[in-house]
Every structure is written in structure tokens, then in C-alpha cells.
């Protein structure tokens, strides 16, 4: 445990530039991952109700008309 913490301290916290960069990058990564995860849960709950689930029917018709 102490070794791990020490490693984290030496690699990340010791230099302020590295520490700040890690925080910013971590914030961006967390935001992106959380959004993707939350949206996928939402789409799972509302499966078949949203436009992106049903638009295939109407888009398909459109292409046939174009041809």
C-alpha cells in the first residue's frame, strides 16, 4: 500500500505541472466516460421509443424513393 502511494506521489503529485495535467486530463476522461455510460443506460431504458430507434423505417423508404 505504502509502495503504491509512494509511487503515485513520486510519479504524479511531486511535480505540480504533472499533477495539474493529470487532474485536467482525468476530468475530461471522466466526463466523456460518464456521458457515454449514462447515455447508453438511458437508451437502454428507452429502447424503441426514440427517433434514432425508429428512423430506419422512414429513412429506408426515402432511399427507395430516391432510386
Amino acid at each position: 500500500m505504502a509502495g503504491v502511494l509512494g509511487g503515485i506521489y513520486n510519479s504524479i503529485v511531486k511535480r505540480n505541472a504533472v499533477f495539474l495535467t493529470t487532474i485536467f486530463a482525468g476530468a475530461f476522461a471522466t466526463n466523456i466516460i460518464f456521458n457515454i455510460g449514462a447515455d447508453s443506460v438511458w437508451d437502454q431504458i428507452n429502447k424503441g421509443r426514440q427517433w434514432k430507434d425508429i428512423k430506419q423505417r422512414y429513412m429506408g423508404d426515402q432511399e427507395e424513393e430516391d432510386e
Binding site: I45, R49, Q50, W51
Partner: peptide, 11 residues
């Protein structure tokens, strides 16, 4: 609270 509109019903 956790449901969207049913978009085929909207159509």
C-alpha cells in the same frame, strides 16, 4: 421521470 416520448406515437 425516466421515459422519453414515444416518437412513433408522436408521428
Amino acid at each position: 421521470l425516466y421515459k422519453t416520448f414515444d416518437h412513433s406515437a408522436l408521428r
